[in-house]
Design a protein around this nucleic acid. Sequence first.
DNA 1: GTCTATATAGCGATAGAC
DNA 2: GTCTATCGCTATATAGAC
Lengths: 217, 217
Amino acid sequence: MVAKRLLTLLAAGMLINVTPRTLPTPSSDSPAVMRLFDAAADAFAAKGFHATTTRDIASRAGLSPAGVYVHFASKEDLLFQLSRDGHVGARDAMAAAAGDADSPTEALRQMIGRFARWHAEELTLARIVQYEFRHLTDEHRHEVLDLRREIDAVVRSVVEAGMTSGEFDVRDSHATTLALLSLVVDVARWYHPGVRRTPDEIEETYGALALRLVAAR
Amino acid sequence: MVAKRLLTLLAAGMLINVTPRTLPTPSSDSPAVMRLFDAAADAFAAKGFHATTTRDIASRAGLSPAGVYVHFASKEDLLFQLSRDGHVGARDAMAAAAGDADSPTEALRQMIGRFARWHAEELTLARIVQYEFRHLTDEHRHEVLDLRREIDAVVRSVVEAGMTSGEFDVRDSHATTLALLSLVVDVARWYHPGVRRTPDEIEETYGALALRLVAAR
DNA sequence: GTCTATATAGCGATAGAC
DNA sequence: GTCTATCGCTATATAGAC
C-alpha cells in the first residue's frame, strides 16, 4: 500500500510536474527549425559535437552557413535544446511506464524496459543525451543535470519501494540504481537499427534484467 | 571439468597470446614521450579528442606546439596509441583475474569485479577507451575493434561455461555478455576518485552484481 | 528569412635555425 | 630534440544586400 501510493505519486505528480513544459512544442516550430534540429541531431550523434561543423548542420538542413543563426544563437544552443528535450522525453517515457504498474516489481520491469526501448527507438537523441552532455556550457549543463537527477530519483524511489515491501533484496539503493541506469544508458552505445534485437525484444530483455539485479522474488 | 579447462585455456593462452605485445613498452619511452602520453590522456579524458588542441597537449607536457610532432605523427596517432594500450591493459587485467578462478562462478565474479576496478583505477585511460574510440581513423579503429572483440569473447566464454556447467541460468549468452559489459563500461562515466566508492568496494559490488545477472546459484 | 561575403580567431602541422 | 615562426586551412559567427 505504501509502495503503491508512492508509485502513483511519482508517476502522476512529481515527475510530470517538477519541470513544467514551458518549452516551445516541436509542432509550433517552422520547417527550417525542424530541419535544423534533425540535421544537428544526426550530425552530433554520428560524429560528436566538436567534430560537427555549423556548415555540416546547415547543408544537411538545406541552408547556407549563415542560415543557422537566424534560428539559433549558437551551435551550443542547438545542442542544449536537443539535450534538454531529449532528457524530458526520456523522463516522461519512464514516468508514464511507472504509472501503469501496481507493484514495485512491475513498476521496475516496465520502467527499465520502457527506458531501454526509448534508447533504441530514439537512438540519435539518446546518444546526444548520454554522450554530448559534457559539451554544454556550465549553465546549460546544470539545467540538464536537474533532469538527470529526476530520472535517477524515480528509479531509486521504485527500488526503495521494493526494498520496503520486501519484494527486492537490495542493500544499497544508490549502487543498484546506478547499475540499473548503466544497463539502459549503454543501449545507446551498442544498438543499431536492425542489428541484434528489436525495440520490443530490448524492452522485454531489459525489464527482466532489471528484476535480476534487484533479486526480485 | 570442461568449464575449468576452458577457463584455464582462456586465461593462460588465448587472450594473452592472441595479440602479442609488440608495442614499445612504456619504460623504454623517453621522459618527453611519457609526459606527452600523460598530457594527452588527461586532456582527451577531460574534454574529448576534438575539443583538445595540440597546443593544450604540448603546453601540459612542457613543450612547444612543434614538440609534439618530434614524437608522434599526429594528434590522432597519440589517441591511437593511448586507446590501443588502454584496451590491451584492460584485456590483460581481466584475463589475469579469470586465471585465478576454479569455476565459472568465481571466474565471472573476479573478471567483472576486476574489470570494474580497472575502470576506476585507470579512469582517464578508461574514458579514452570507452568514449574516444570513434575518433580513430578507420584503420586504427578496426585494429582496436579486434581487441574489443577479444574482451567480449572472454566474458561470453565464461558465461557459456557457466551455462554448460549449470551454474548460470542464462538463455542468451550474447545479451547477457552485453549487459555485463554495460555495467562495467559505465563505471568510466560516473566514477570520480573519492566519490561514492573506493576501487575495492567497486570490485566487490560489481562482482556480486555480475552473479545476479546470470542468476548464479 | 535567406543569401553572399567576410571578419576574426584558432586549428593541425611544417620549415629551418640551433 | 627543441625551439621560433609561420603556412594553409577551417572554424564560428556576423554584416549587409535582397
